[in-house]
């Protein structure tokens, strides 16, 4: 008994701040979401003071609303396009290209890519806006080539935000893959080369299986980061035009803080959390199988 008490004294003080903060700001809010999503809580008025339990009403409204369906679909497209394919693919390519290159090249390319990554989302959005809008740089270049320009943020808004997110986020995947590639034993790839495998087959059949765990972990991290992207889209398009870039975080924010429908907004947050959980489960399962 005394020994147990001594043990608690050893671990509790150093853990306490973390446990309190995580309990208060992560576990608590998740639990609150799961409760409030079943109420008609509002930002102001009677429903703000005495919220009523409304059962599944929020979710019924949610799944019959064309808005939410469209938003969910947009979010999935945004995540697949900008994170799973875009950042992941571009990061891997850059890491492979820079493998065993001169220090100078790696230093310069690496620094530039990383500079885009540390850029605050708001600043990144401004930079991309300046690049894609009607008087933007892309149209100047197209004009110089004799091609007609257009307001890309209006004609291809989803493409614009996907591009912006790839531009901004590729560095993380690149850094992760650079580290992973440097740990692939070189005798493996050399043996495959001796056996006559070209660079693509060497990568696919030798390198990729070795770094598979890193790929899956990276995919999980960037997927979850991308699910929550708010500022980039908010500043670039504010969810428009015609709601064509209104992903779940923007819809949630609009419902909760613009229209004051806290219960309904929270139900959207629960859908967002569930989407994150589904992606995570898929990734975790793929790690467990075919080991």
């Amino acid at each position: 008994m005394a020994r147990n008490g001594k043990r608690v004294l050893a671990w509790l003080p150093p853990m306490a701040p973390s446990v309190v903060l995580l309990g208060l700001f992560v576990v608590g809010p998740i639990a609150w979401c799961l409760y409030a999503a079943f109420t008609n809580t509002a930002l102001t008025g009677i429903a703000a003071r005495r919220p009523q339990f409304v059962g599944l009403d929020n979710f019924k409204n949610l799944f019959t609303s064309a808005d939410v369906g469209a938003s969910l679909w947009l979010t999935v497209l945004f995540v697949l396009g900008s994170a799973v394919v875009g950042q992941n693919g571009a990061g891997m390519l850059l890491a492979v290209f820079m493998q065993r290159r001169s220090r100078v090249l790696r230093g310069i390319v690496g620094t530039i890519v990383v500079a885009a990554w540390v850029l605050p989302e708001v600043v990144a959005a401004f930079a991309v806006y300046a690049f894609l809008n009607t008087n933007g740089t892309l149209n100047e270049v197209l004009g110089a080539l004799g091609l007609g320009g257009q307001n890309w943020l209006y004609t291809a808004p989803l493409f614009a935000v996907v591009l912006a997110n790839i531009w901004r986020g590729t560095a993380f995947s690149m850094l992760v893959y650079q580290a992973a590639l440097s740990e692939v034993p070189s005798d493996l790839t050399e043996a495959a080369e001796v056996d006559g495998a070209g660079p693509v087959r060497r990568f696919w059949h030798v390198v990729l299986p070795v770094i598979r765990r890193t790929v899956v972990t990276n995919l999980m991290l960037i997927t979850l980061q991308t699910l929550g992207v708010f500022a980039l889209i908010f500043v670039l398009t504010a969810g428009g035009p015609d709601n064509k870039t209104r992903t779940l975080p923007l819809l949630m924010y609009e419902q909760a803080f613009k229209f004051g429908q806290i219960g309904y907004g929270t139900a959207i947050a629960v859908v967002l959390l569930a989407l994150g959980a589904v992606f995570s489960l898929v990734y975790i399962r793929s790690l467990k199988t075919e080991v």
Partner: peptide, 20 residues
């Protein structure tokens, strides 16, 4: 708990955080 906390898109917690 730490692993799960890393998997939560924190933006989804904006509404409860506001009330907190």
């Amino acid at each position: 708990m730490l692993l799960v906390a890393q998997m939560v898109p924190v933006e989804a917690l904006t509404i409860p955080m506001f009330f907190l």
